[in-house]
């Protein structure tokens, strides 16, 4: 494995993702702007926070263009996954547009708390190397108030009132709405699977 670039999009979970990779024996390179991106073998876009601020930061640092032009596997985590899509209802902001679809707010319903916070089950929708070793109904840790609807790119769904995309994959583009860095063995397995993906 050559380099893993970990994008600093201003999210507070940057450190946690770095530590999770280090637990797997991978020391990522923290990348703050497009000039620092270089030619990594893998790119991880973590994110905690709000979509408008994160997109503004990516644009200011030229990373929106750089991430679109990449040809290596890219994993978006939580907000980082949402940013891969066209738009987000959060601040009605235009996102990276690498995947079709719009991120929507999880609407509170009676007995249904928002943000969706805690461990929820993953329901695989198709076979994919990203899901290797992750059993159906495995629990992963989620914290989010917005979600991606289940579309053709959805690899595993989860339910909170309605079904939403817990994992997505289209070619080199991968995403996890949950936090692999905080999802114990399931999270470590996803990161290992991502690092082991054949370059698209």
């Amino acid at each position: 494995m050559s380099t893993v670039a970990l994008i600093d999009a201003g999210g507070a979970n940057l450190g946690s993702v770095r530590y999770a990779l280090e637990r797997l024996g991978v020391v990522p390179r923290i990348v703050r702007d497009a000039d620092e991106l270089g030619l990594p073998a893998r790119v991880i876009l973590p994110g905690v926070g709000a979509a408008p601020q994160a997109m503004r930061l990516l644009r200011e640092r030229g990373l929106d263009v750089a991430l679109r032009a990449l040809e290596v596997p890219l994993l978006g985590i939580c907000l980082g996954m949402q940013l891969l899509f066209e738009r987000s209802e959060e601040g009605e902001v235009e996102c990276l547009g690498l995947l079709p679809g719009k991120v929507r707010r999880l609407a509170p319903q009676p007995g249904l708390r928002v943000p969706h916070m805690g461990w929820n089950r993953l329901r695989p929708l198709r076979v994919d190397p990203l899901l290797d070793g992750i059993p159906a109904d495995a629990h992963a840790y989620f914290v989010h108030g917005y979600a991606v609807p289940v579309t053709g790119d959805c690899l595993a769904a989860s339910e909170h009132g309605t079904a939403f995309a817990a994992m997505v994959r289209r070619g080199r583009l991968c995403g996890a709405q949950f936090h692999p860095e905080r999802s114990s063995d399931v999270g470590a397995r996803l990161l290992r699977n991502f690092l082991a993906l054949e370059a698209a």
Partner: peptide, 11 residues
């Protein structure tokens, strides 16, 4: 806090 974060893989 950092020591915990490096090792712990739950929130």
């Amino acid at each position: 806090v950092e020591r915990v974060a490096r090792t712990l893989d739950i929130p």
